[in-house]
């Protein structure tokens, strides 16, 4: 308890620490927002709540890590992870998701939870349970007399995340497939009547989601750490962000992602790194309760 209090006191004593925490949090939050955007996509378009979301992220991270172990430049890992995970996403859709898509919500949730277990355990068997990261070897920039340190690698990660997000948004807006996805999200039956092959749209959406997660994971391995069993925490974060922001609200997802990143950094600073999962879950419960009260005011429940 005294430990927590003194950590908290530090924040008041040195305001610059706050700035450092926020900057760190925002940089990592940008990556959370990326996988949350993927979740919002599959949730909105095909009504699948994917609990394997975080494991796609971690798998993408391992693709990048493995490539860099083989001597390839790590930055190349981002597009490769994107492509590999797109393929895995497509296979997962064809084998599992397309069979549960019309069933009740818990079926999809449990099926994806089963997938999450499979993926985490396979990663564990293939790569071991140690935490891994890739060092890009870039320098760190210092501001405010060295109080604020911004590794160039992290900056690069944020830029790549932003580029990917912009790319996806443009794709959704202007390509034929993007239009078909948006049409399907609004009304599946109408889309079908108008000749859109919704099965193809679903398959594409799901593999796009996996690809986004994969790229996010590849960036995460360069700026942070990954471990086979970290997936579930990433999934919880994605759910927190989507629940807070709502579906189809990209600015909201970004804002919530950055906010969650910053709040988690605060939590880690005050309570210590041992409470990482608990903090993510606490944020989830807070967001849920908040949304619930909001809904109750309009005499509704959270569906």
């Amino acid at each position: 308890m005294e430990q927590f209090a003194s950590n908290f006191g530090l924040l008041l004593q040195f305001p610059v620490v706050n700035l450092k925490i926020v900057i760190d949090g925002v940089m990592i939050g940008a990556l959370f927002a990326l996988s949350a955007y993927g979740l919002a996509l599959v949730w909105g378009v095909m009504n699948v709540k994917n609990l394997a979301q975080g494991d796609f992220v971690i798998a993408g991270g391992y693709v990048c890590w493995w490539l860099s172990q083989k001597g390839l430049p790590a930055l190349l890992g981002v597009p490769i992870a994107f492509l590999v995970m797109a393929g895995i996403g497509w296979v997962v859709y064809k084998v599992v998701i397309c069979r549960v898509i019309d069933r009740d919500l818990f079926t999809t949730l449990l099926a994806t939870f089963g997938l999450a277990i499979i993926m985490a355990q396979m990663l564990n068997l293939m790569f071991g349970s140690d935490t891994q990261s890739v060092d890009l070897g870039y320098e760190t920039l210092y501001f405010m007399d060295g109080f604020i340190d911004v590794p160039i690698a992290k900056l690069l990660g944020v830029l790549m995340a932003a580029a990917l997000a912009i790319g996806v948004v443009l794709f959704m807006k202007y390509s034929r497939m993007g239009q078909a996805i948006r049409a399907t999200a609004q009304d599946v039956r109408a889309a079908r009547v108008l000749g859109i092959n919704t099965d193809k749209v679903y398959a594409f959406t799901f593999s796009l989601n996996a690809a986004i997660c994969g790229a996010a994971g590849a960036i995460i391995v360069m700026v942070w750490v990954i471990q086979p069993f970290y997936g579930i925490t990433h999934s919880v974060r994605a759910f927190v962000i989507v629940t807070a922001a709502g579906l189809g609200n990209l600015p909201g997802v970004i804002a919530a992602g950055l906010g969650i990143g910053a709040l988690e950094q605060y939590g880690a600073h005050i309570f210590g790194i041992g409470y990482q999962q608990a903090i993510a879950v606490l944020l989830l419960l807070l967001v849920l309760v908040f949304r619930l009260l909001q809904q109750r005011r309009v005499r509704q429940s959270l569906q």
């Binding site: 999962q277 608990a278 993510a280 849920l288 309760v289």
Partner: peptide, 28 residues
């Protein structure tokens, strides 16, 4: 009392979250 306002998937994820958090809290 907190989670039963949550329907469907939120309930499943909320309770899963509680279990994960409880384990971490107790182990600390």
């Amino acid at each position: 009392y907190i989670t039963f306002g949550l329907r469907g998937p939120y309930f499943a994820i909320g309770t899963l979250g509680v279990a994960i958090a409880a384990g971490e809290l107790v182990s600390n």
